[in-house]
């Protein structure tokens, strides 16, 4: 048995020096990135980072606690609208507004989590689905929220500097993303995270060990909603304009796809899933201009389907991805990564 000097080593963020090394490389990469890329690429990176935040939060709920939410777009919408309205009506600065919006979303998450205590998986799925749809319906019908037309997002300025370019926004967004990823990692290796995983594995055993199911399930909802809320605020900033149709049911499913494809119950899974699915989603918007695949799809479209409907190929692909991952790789990309790692360690035996 290896000798441990201190029990903290069991749970420290980086288990081995090599992890620290890779993390430093990653940080350097994140710092260099805006210096070597165009503004357009930066806007993609920003969008990806924001989705990673949502995925981190949703994974806590779905992957760690074993609950489900089909209405996370609703929390993102609440965060986005709260940020904008707090800035407009109360004249708050961006950061206080963003944090407060996170708490507003968390409050709604808490409320939605309350019935969750009494609901098993399928019922909860239905309730959250209804929640997500109700949020956009209510926003779309109320003039205070700008109705269907939506709201214009004010320019943000931090310490007197107005942030306008994607590169400037990148600094803010990526710092928040890294911070929130670490916070989530901390949470999941602490007492609270352990209790949540225990609920997923056996809620009855967790309860007989003193875990208050009611409290921890609502807590999981609230934290998850907080992440979605903050992401919503950032989303509003990079979009510059928000309306209820952005936060539709498909968005909620896309978030779920990020968790499933990345790997439920793993921080690295959230990050991988957020990156890969968002990237795919963005690429698919211009699928016809892709080499080979684009031609093939155009061919299929003209022969059997319709060319004008080709953008819907995105849904087809994500549907297939969801099914394939659940059936063949329930641990997602993270599971594949673990297997590759194991393979190399024992190679060539």
């Amino acid at each position: 048995m290896d000798m441990k000097r201190h029990y903290y080593e069991d749970i420290q963020i980086f288990q081995k020096p090599v992890h620290v090394f890779w993390f430093v490389i990653l940080l350097i990469g994140l710092v260099i990135l805006p210096l070597v890329t165009r503004n357009y690429t930066m806007s993609l990176v920003n969008f990806i980072a924001i989705n990673v935040i949502v995925t981190l939060g949703l994974n806590l709920l779905v992957g760690y606690t074993g609950q489900i939410s089909l209405g996370h777009a609703g929390f993102v919408a609440i965060g986005a609208y709260a940020t904008v309205l707090l800035m407009q009506h109360l004249g708050l600065n961006f950061f206080p507004a963003l944090v407060l919006a996170g708490f507003v979303a968390a409050g709604f998450g808490f409320l939605l989590g309350l019935p969750a205590l009494r609901l098993e998986g399928p019922y909860l799925a239905i309730a959250t689905l209804g929640f997500g749809m109700a949020v956009t319906q209510i926003i779309g019908r109320s003039t205070f929220f700008g109705g269907r037309m939506g709201l214009k997002v004010p320019k943000i300025n931090i310490a007197g500097i107005t942030l306008s370019s994607d590169k400037e926004l990148y600094i803010v967004i990526i710092s928040i993303t890294v911070l929130m990823a670490f916070a989530m990692r901390n949470l999941t290796r602490s007492r609270v995270g352990r209790a949540l995983i225990a609920i997923r594995e056996s809620d009855i055993a967790a309860e007989t060990l003193g875990v208050n199911l009611a409290w921890y399930k609502t807590l999981s909802f609230a934290v998850s909603a907080f992440y979605a809320g903050v992401a919503g605020g950032l989303l509003a900033i990079i979009f510059g304009y928000i309306n209820p149709s952005i936060f539709d049911f498909v968005m909620s499913i896309l978030f779920l796809a990020m968790v499933v494809v990345g790997g439920a119950g793993a921080i690295l899974g959230s990050i991988l899933g957020g990156i890969v699915v968002t990237f795919l989603d963005l690429k698919l918007n211009a699928v016809t201009s892709m080499p080979l695949i684009g031609d093939l799809l155009r061919e299929i479209s003209t022969r059997w389907m319709s060319v004008s409907g080709l953008p819907n190929f995105r849904s087809v692909l994500f549907g297939i991805l969801l099914i394939l991952f659940v059936v063949f790789e329930p641990h997602g990309l993270y599971g594949i990564w673990l297997r590759i790692k194991k393979y190399w360690k024992t190679w060539p035996f």
Partner: peptide, 27 residues
């Protein structure tokens, strides 16, 4: 049992009621 958790983590759940770490401490 919590089948996907290690022995150590399973036993740590037994310590749950004796620990005070809350959500903020965790984060």
């Amino acid at each position: 049992l919590f089948f996907r958790m290690t022995t150590m983590e399973n036993l740590m759940l037994g310590r749950h009621i004796h620990m005070r770490t809350n959500i903020w401490h965790g984060l």
